[in-house]
Design a protein around this nucleic acid. Sequence first.
DNA 1: TTGCGTGCAAACTGTTTGCAACTTA
DNA 2: TAAGTTGCAAACAGTTTGCACGCAA
Lengths: 142, 142
Amino acid sequence: MQGDAARSFRDLCEEHGIAVTHQRQVLYEVMRAMSGHPSPEEIYAGVRQRIPTISLATVYKNIHLFVESGVLREVSLHHGTVRVEMTGHEHHHVVCSKCKSISDIDESELGLIPKQDRLPGGFLVERYAVDVIGLCANCQQS
Amino acid sequence: MQGDAARSFRDLCEEHGIAVTHQRQVLYEVMRAMSGHPSPEEIYAGVRQRIPTISLATVYKNIHLFVESGVLREVSLHHGTVRVEMTGHEHHHVVCSKCKSISDIDESELGLIPKQDRLPGGFLVERYAVDVIGLCANCQQS
DNA sequence: TTGCGTGCAAACTGTTTGCAACTTA
DNA sequence: TAAGTTGCAAACAGTTTGCACGCAA
């Protein structure tokens, strides 16, 4: 397992021509293990458990690098800080407008979205990001 | 026209129990006249043409107020700063992942999205916000 | 008149940058 | 060894807050 993850990360770096450093490897593993949509601070806290001397600046620099490489995806969720998630299976987000909690929803649960590859005007579609906004079960009570 | 806008703004304030100040009225009119998804700074710049002494803090405070009242909607678009838009006809957003430009797209142009009022788990849906992410015509050339 | 709203300045938060020391390839 | 990466500290941008004064109701 460890071996597999290490290998694929090594490959990933090779693909994108970036160096394999201890920090990056741990960052990657920590983010893999984190569910949800962690903020840079949360990732920083996680990595610090294994590399106490890591700098927040390094975390930011590598988050950007990973986003550019396509390892991470930047998620835009009516939030104050940056949130990221590992790129993986297609899903969308359910956001409570009151408590701001976020959960994932599978595309199949949402009902099929009629996707177009190209929009009038020549826009080339990469993906659709759907946020379902409303009230979660808890917040409906108040 | 002027009269209508002033009247409806007055009503809006009454509905929400907030005072009608000169600043708020101008803010509202300026934002109405702005197309797209202005940032607080842009709104500030616009209002300053008519009230040069207005404070940025006032702009922020009233943006929050308007968002809470439902006059404005906070838009979440892979951007560094807050963006808002007037609430009005339903539309979604097309975002270029390279140059970060944003344009609106009407729901009808997008193809129908099968909307549910409730999601498994009891989540009560208010609305769907769809971001179509990809490359605009310009950015495809490079 | 009373309380809400404004403007100012200072504080804060999240993020970015410059640079010397150190690792990776 | 050369190029890329790290950690630190300082700089920044956007946003928020506290408070005295002023205006709407």
